[in-house]
Structure formats: C-alpha cells, structure tokens
C-alpha cells in the first residue's frame, strides 16, 4: 500500500448528505457526474435551505442514479418524467424545495416536453442537467445534445442531427435562471448551484461532463482527465452572453457562465394572487 499510513478521521465532510453505505457509486472512473454531485452537495450546504424540505428527483440514466446517493428525500422516477413528478411534489407541499438532477437524454429527449412546459410555467424548481452528450447508461447512443457528426453507438458514421443548445432551449422556454459550467469549474458550479437553489422560479444549470467510457472513447477524446484538461484550455466564461450563441461543436469551444438571471412571477405567485382575490381581500 502507500508509503505511510494515512490517519483517517471518522467522516468525509460531505458524508452527512451522502448515503455512504451505497458508495462507491456506479459511475465510471473519470466520469464527471460524481463531481457534479459533489458540487451540488456543497451548494446545498451553503444554501442554508432546511435540508428536510429539500427533495431530489432523478429520472433514468447514469445521472438518474444521483438521487439514490443523496441522504435526503429522493425519488428515482421513470425515464424523462422527473420534472412532472417534481411538479406534483412542489405543488402538493410548497414548503418543499424540489431539485431535479438528471442527464441530457432523460431531461431533453424523452423528457423534453415536460422540460419546456415546466420552464414555461415557471414553477419553483431547480433542474441540474449533467450533459455528457450521449446516453451513457445504455451504452453510448446518440442523444439530443450529441454534437453534429459525432460518433456514438447509434451514429457510428457520425451524427447527422443538429443538437439542442440547452441554455438557449431553457431560456427560450422561460427559465428565470440559466447557467452552464463544466465539471472542472467546481467552485463556480457550486456557487451557481447555490444561486439556482435560492432562485425563485424555474432555474436551470447545465453541467458539461466527460463520458470516458462511451462518448469520449468513441470520438477519440481520451480519458476523463483529458476532457477536464480540454475544458481548462477550451472553455471561456462569458457571463450574460445571449444563450443563442453558446452552441457546442464537437471538439469546439465551450462557453460557460451565467447567461440568464431575471425576475418573473412564479406559478405560486399567481396562485396566491388568485387566492387573495377569491377571499375578497384587495389583491
């Protein structure tokens, strides 16, 4: 073993929010989902939210397993349906802070309809989308964010479809907070997630992540560490940029930052207004 025994104190500082009896988790070596989850747990602690009222909802896929590792009320729903499930939770008990933690395939492909409608309604929830550009769990198939001409298990000759630009999709649908970071920008991601958690309305944070086992391997992009180095060289922070301009091409620049941070009445704001009017008080 290592040269000198290391003194191991009782617990990893973030253990209290982890179901550590379920670690090590299922994600591959070099995958960024664990880092995104790590930043999320840090953000949760810094947010000061009452943790017993925070609920994590995940869909199906690699990132979908995240809910199972967080020691809070957590739901692992069917593929693409985390957001409507969370909508029900949130409206049933407005004390709950619902967070959807899922992947690009789950949220944007099969779950795309729910995603755009939840953003449109501006129901208070935070959506964290770990985007590794493909369906990892099922073996690296092409997805709605796979860059054009990229190779995957189901686009072996190159992907002939334009991908979604997630910040643009979220912003166009009505999200009040839109940010994108990579799994390298851990400090900024943690701060952004705290902002998103405390933001009233539909907040969206995209986290670009390596997928060493499938997408990165099939496109000769190297190991997880190579992707993280790639993020260091090729990402550029441009806060407030028009999300229209943040497309990602295969191997191209990745614009990160907080693009949208606006105020808009939430679904429950309108409900309260209606309730007040119904009770005859001047609204």
């Amino acid at each position: 073993m290592s040269q000198r025994p290391t003194v191991v104190p009782p617990k990893h500082p973030r253990e209290s929010l982890l179901r550590e009896e379920r670690l090590p988790h299922i994600w591959c070596s070099g995958c960024g989902i664990g880092t995104a989850l790590n930043c999320f747990i840090g953000a949760l602690e810094k947010s000061g939210l009452p943790l017993d009222k925070v609920v994590i909802v995940s869909g199906i896929g690699c990132t979908g397993r995240a809910a199972g590792y967080i020691r809070l009320d957590s739901f692992h729903t069917t593929h693409g349906r985390a957001i409507p499930f969370a909508t029900g939770l949130r409206l049933a008990n407005p004390e709950l802070k619902v967070v959807i933690f899922s992947g690009d395939g789950d949220l944007i492909a099969i779950g795309g309809n729910h995603f755009i409608h939840a953003a449109r309604r501006n129901i208070d929830m935070t959506v964290v989308c770990v985007n590794n550009f493909n369906y990892g769990m099922t073996g690296g198939q092409v997805g709605p964010t796979t860059p054009a001409m990229a190779k995957t298990a189901t686009s072996p000759y190159g992907n002939s479809e334009h991908p979604f630009n997630l910040p643009y999709l979220a912003a166009a649908s009505g999200a009040v907070y839109v940010a994108r970071w990579t799994t390298l920008h851990v400090r900024r991601l943690e701060r952004s997630l705290t902002e998103a958690l405390l933001k009233e309305g539909f907040s969206f944070v995209e986290v670009i992540s390596p997928c060493p086992t499938y997408f990165d391997r099939m496109n000769r992009l190297g190991e997880g560490l190579d992707m993280m180095k790639f993020y260091r060289e090729s990402s550029e922070i441009v806060h407030g940029l028009d999300p229209r301009k943040v497309d990602i091409d295969l191997g191209g620049k990745i614009i990160v930052g907080k693009f949208i941070d606006i105020e808009k009445p939430t679904y429950l704001d309108f409900q309260r207004e209606i309730q007040a009017r119904m009770e005859g008080e001047p609204s």
């Binding site: 990893h12 670690l23 995958c31 960024g32 989902i33 790590n38 851990v186 943690e190």
Partner: peptide, 15 residues
C-alpha cells in the same frame, strides 16, 4: 479543498 470537491468518488478531503 479543491481535491475534496473535484473528486467524483468522495474519496479525498483535507482538514
């Protein structure tokens, strides 16, 4: 604490 937050496995931390 960078190692702690960047680690995908929650396998390292500093105090």
């Amino acid at each position: 604490g960078l190692c702690e937050v960047i680690c995908p496995e929650f396998a390292i931390y500093s105090l």
